Simulated assay, not measured.
Amino acid sequence: MRSARRCAPPLRRRWQALPPTPSRSQSRSRAALPDVRRGPASQPRSSAVTIIGGRGRSIMDRRTNFQEAWGMTIKLHTKPLITLLKLQPQLETADERTLSLYLPVRAEGFDAAHYDLLLNHLAAEYKGRLDEKQAKVLQSELARLRTHLKLVRPAGGPGIAAFSNESLGLQSLIRLPESVPPRIEVGRPLLEPLELMLRRLPPSLVVVVDKREARIFASILGEVIPLQHVTGQSVRHSRAGGTSAPSNQRKAENRARANLKRVVEMIDKEVKNGEFDRILVSGPGEARAELIHELPKPLERLVAGHLSASLDTPPGKLMVDIREQVAVISRREEAG
């Protein structure tokens, strides 16, 4: 038996001696393919120049289209960023003529002269590193952003990200929950700083509800975006006695349950569309508890907490309340 074993060719040799088969040829072709997790090294990349202000440093960085750079792993690694791109779809389709801008927000309030000086300093450092075509993009898009900043007058947050591309009708300003160094770039939208922030501060679906009405918002970074407004049947609990009282009570409860089921349908739709990983619920305690009870198990597991915002608050103030309360929750989660 021992001699027989010694005479048998090693497994590796026997494998090599076999005629080629589809499975073997496939395995070898797979081994020759580049690893997509490292990015498509063989594909050409477009160059871009980035200036980070405040310290007088310049960084030459070669970047590709965001989806090309991450290839097949984009859904595995950047789900919060996908949520942002679904709420801001133009950022995904913007081209090389886009101006990206990151700025800290002045704590003392908006001052146009302050932002003019800051933008002039960033543009002066950056312009010398651009070709003629890029320099024209910088000049035209920066003028659009200056005008937009003066209209929006950013305040109430530590930082902002802005994107401008006149050819595509893109002009977006995103409030950030924390300060950022001044930064400017011409090219495809600079999304990496947002991605890093979103990994620590994931987006939330916020539901403000009572037994008749609900408002659904997306809370992402420092922004609160209205998504749905659901108005159901009127729910009135009769205080009158008599034999009809139990029947009236059941009718009111059935109407309230029907209203909440409609809200659940809207929540399910928005979670799937926006790929949200967590839900925050606000409203009177009873309505909040009944809504959570009506949620199917997969949605119930996404409920991460509750807020104290109320539908009695005017819509503008309601969004401010949500922004402030979500920021408190995010700081608490980071701290502990």
Rank of each mutant, 00 (worst) to 15 (best):
R2A: 11
R2I: 12
R6Q: 15
P9R: 15
W15F: 13
L18N: 01
P20A: 13
S25V: 14
S27C: 08
S29E: 12
A31K: 08
G39K: 03
P40L: 08
S42K: 09
R45V: 02
R45K: 12
A48Y: 00
V49P: 03
V49T: 09
V49K: 06
I52L: 12
D61R: 13
T64P: 01
W70M: 05
M72R: 14
K75V: 10
K75S: 14
L76Q: 15
T78K: 06
L84D: 02
L84F: 11
A94P: 03
D95I: 04
R106N: 15
R106E: 12
R106Y: 14
E108I: 13
F110Y: 15
A112E: 12
L118V: 07
L119T: 02
L119F: 09
N120T: 10
K127R: 15
G128P: 02
L130A: 05
D131C: 08
D131W: 07
E132K: 14
Q134R: 12
V137Y: 04
L138A: 09
R144V: 06
R144Q: 11
R144S: 15
L145H: 02
R146Y: 06
V152N: 04
V152M: 11
P154N: 09
A155Q: 13
A161D: 01
A161P: 00
A161G: 05
A161I: 03
F163Y: 10
F163P: 00
E166Q: 12
L170K: 01
Q171R: 10
S172M: 06
L176I: 01
P181V: 02
P181C: 02
P182I: 04
R188V: 08
L191W: 01
L191K: 03
M197Y: 04
R199Q: 14
L205I: 11
D210C: 03
K211Q: 14
R212V: 12
A218W: 00
S219C: 08
E223V: 00
P226H: 09
L227F: 09
Q228F: 11
V230H: 10
S244D: 15
K251M: 10
A252P: 02
E253S: 12
N254D: 13
N254P: 01
R255N: 09
A256C: 07
R257N: 12
R257F: 03
N259T: 07
K261N: 14
I267G: 00
E275C: 04
E275Y: 02
F276T: 05
F276I: 04
L280V: 09
P284N: 09
R288I: 04
A289I: 07
L291R: 02
E294V: 05
P296M: 08
P298D: 07
R301N: 11
L302I: 08
L302A: 05
V303H: 06
V303F: 05
H306S: 15
P315Y: 02
G316W: 05
K317R: 14
V320W: 00
V320A: 07
V320L: 08
D321V: 04
I322E: 02
R323L: 01
R323N: 02
V326Q: 00
I329F: 07
R332A: 15
E333L: 12
G336I: 01
